[in-house]
């Protein structure tokens, strides 16, 4: 789709806004509707739009598939790490209270942590699924 000037220009303007909105949804999920799932999908949508307009190769140069797969595993790992951190500090699995003295701060820290894990997983899984379907050639 390289010849559509309107699409290229609009995409260039919109994609940073989409990514910023994804991050907003991710980190403002405690105070307004949102969280890791929605943020991950919106973040991935930015990459998908980019590759629809500029071609899959350009995106795969910036974000290679291997990095996506590793990051997906890292997201799940981050989630479990927060759970085990609670155990190591004397609590139960996924118990955040033991992180700090202040209950509210500890819970918020734990929630932000695992929402980050979920967000990374969802975003990278969505990108990886898109790569899998778009990168396959018809035979």
């Amino acid at each position: 789709m390289n010849q559509y000037t309107v699409l290229r220009v609009i995409a260039k303007i919109m994609i940073p806004v989409i990514l910023l909105y994804g991050l907003y949804i991710q980190f403002h999920g405690e105070y307004s509707p949102g969280g890791g799932f929605q943020a991950g999908i919106i973040f991935a949508a930015g990459f998908v739009i980019y590759s629809l307009i500029y071609g899959l190769e350009k995106v795969q140069q910036a974000v290679p598939p291997v990095a996506v797969h590793v990051l997906a595993a890292f997201g799940v790992f981050l989630f479990i790490a927060f759970g085990i951190a609670g155990m190591l500090m004397g609590g139960d699995f996924l118990q955040y209270r033991v992180f700090m003295e202040d209950n509210h701060a500890a819970e918020t820290l734990g929630i932000i942590g695992i929402e980050l894990g979920v967000g990374i997983t969802v975003a990278t899984v969505a990108i990886a699924l898109f790569y899998a379907f778009a990168g396959r050639e018809r035979d």
Partner: peptide, 27 residues
């Protein structure tokens, strides 16, 4: 929990184990 969005607090604190399973499923 100390955060106003109840969906987030249920999702990530009270029922974090469900969410963990879900993240593993999509992975």
């Amino acid at each position: 929990i100390g955060i106003p969005n109840m969906v987030t607090s249920v999702l990530a604190s009270y029922r974090a184990l469900d969410t963990l399973g879900e993240a593993v499923v999509i992975f």
